[in-house]
């Protein structure tokens, strides 16, 4: 089922995320996905996140689909030129994949093959444009297709970016290029998120707020210093540091954030980064 149908029904959409392993042992990954069955509307499968070479997103999306789970196929511009990107979109469609998240991708030097040739033939906006063109029955070279795919196209935005202006400008372009929903970078400050949502009201596009489970005070400080557009407020860090049980606290904080932001947006996207088995508990605590 497409995520757009869920937004259209007015339901608060819930997605989570799994990352394919480096290698071919996928039992653990599929177990993580099983834990989410019936609890989330779709599961994002990351495309070699942080530029680390791994098993591909397309194959895992297909396996999820076979098991009756709904995948969101993440596709980045880092490793493929416009021919391969369009081809992979068509491949995804025939494998039954309907939700696609179009991203630029991290730079190669941040991963484990820093000497690889970066591609970036398209960017996230032109990738969305290419996907929209395919849906119209033609490719980027304006050649006709035999049968058009039909996707629900998604994109990402960073509400905490500084400066925010260029982010919103690019978000507008993504909507014009065909983005039907947005998932955001991690948000820890509901007031700032509310400001952001007010600034993009005119775009009229569903936004799913991003929640990254805080694992420790150290992780929060690390993200503040190193992750673009993520700011964990000091009181949250202290709360984390003083907690006797980190896991319990983390779940409580995530659930609280979701409750506070639920009415501002159309969905939530939970990134557990290794704590995938805690996601059902977060959803339960948040009343979803």
């Amino acid at each position: 089922m497409k995520l757009s149908e869920i937004f259209a029904s007015g339901k608060f959409a819930v997605t989570s995320e799994i990352g394919p392993p480096k290698g071919v042992n996928i039992e653990a990954l599929l177990e993580q996905a099983e834990l989410l069955r019936g609890k989330v509307d779709a599961i994002n499968v990351t495309d070699q996140q942080s530029s680390v070479m791994r098993l591909g997103s397309l194959a895992i999306c297909h396996l999820l689909k076979e098991r009756g789970l709904e995948p969101v196929f993440q596709i980045t511009c880092r490793d493929r030129n416009r021919i391969a990107l369009q081809s992979d979109l068509l491949s995804a469609y025939v494998l039954g994949i309907r939700n696609v998240l179009c991203l630029t991708g991290d730079y190669v030097s941040l991963g484990d093959h820093p000497g690889a040739k970066p591609v970036f033939d398209l960017d996230s906006v032109s990738l969305l444009h290419a996907a929209s063109e395919l849906q119209q029955g033609r490719d980027l070279a304006k050649q006709a297709l035999k049968g058009n795919p039909d996707f629900c196209l998604g994109a990402v935005v960073t509400p905490g970016a500084n400066p925010l202006g260029p982010q919103i400008m690019k978000m507008e372009k993504k909507v014009k290029a065909g983005a039907q929903f947005f998932q955001t970078q991690a948000v820890y400050d509901p007031r700032k998120f509310e400001d952001f949502m007010n600034q993009i009201k005119h775009l009229n596009v569903p936004v799913m707020v991003g929640i990254v489970l805080l694992k420790s005070a150290g992780m929060a400080r690390f993200m503040n210093a190193n992750v673009a557009g993520v700011h964990v407020p000091e009181p949250l860090i202290e709360e984390m540091a003083d907690a006797p049980d980190r896991v319990e606290k983390s779940i409580e904080i995530a659930a609280r954030l979701i409750k506070e932001m639920k009415d501002m947006c159309q969905g939530v996207h939970i990134m557990a980064i290794g704590w995938e088995e805690k996601v059902p508990a977060v959803l339960e605590a948040a009343g979803l």
């Binding site: 991290d106 941040l110 960017d123 372009k173 673009a228």
Partner: peptide, 20 residues
């Protein structure tokens, strides 16, 4: 830009600095 971004900044820009 290392990523040849022609339509706007990538998500990695941090306070006006480059993720790369």
């Amino acid at each position: 830009c290392p990523k040849s971004q022609r339509n706007g900044p990538c998500g990695g820009a941090m306070d006006g600095h480059c993720e790369v």
